[in-house]
Amino acid sequence: MHDVMHGVLGLYNYWIVIILMMTGFYTVIARPNLVKKIIGLFIFQTSVFILFISMAKIEGGTAPIISEGARIYSNPLPHVLILTAIVVSLATTALALALVIRIREAYGTINEDDIHVQDEEA
């Protein structure tokens, strides 16, 4: 029983990450609204960030800034990867949203189903 509890707590972060990831994935594939799809992608990528940062954590560790009195530091490498990934995610999100604005101007809608209908008629 104790082992099972330990296993569940040890993997809890990863399971929540997967649930979040699938929530984002579902929003991307099931919702026709383009802005909603981008928000789904946003949830998906934030869940990947949480996965990396959870793996970097060391029990009893502290933030990786060298200081007196601290002996165990959490792993700085995933922090670096995710820090830059967040900034890149902003850049890609902005580009996607700019495309959505242009699609709205061209089609008068941001609903995927309506866009397909218009494309077939044309």
């Binding site: 954590k57 560790g61 900034v87």
Partner: peptide, 15 residues
């Protein structure tokens, strides 16, 4: 909470 203070600052400002 997960000791990634630099990442937290970035996420708060950007996200």
């Amino acid at each position: 909470v997960l000791d990634a203070v630099d990442v937290a600052l970035t996420e708060a400002a950007i996200g």
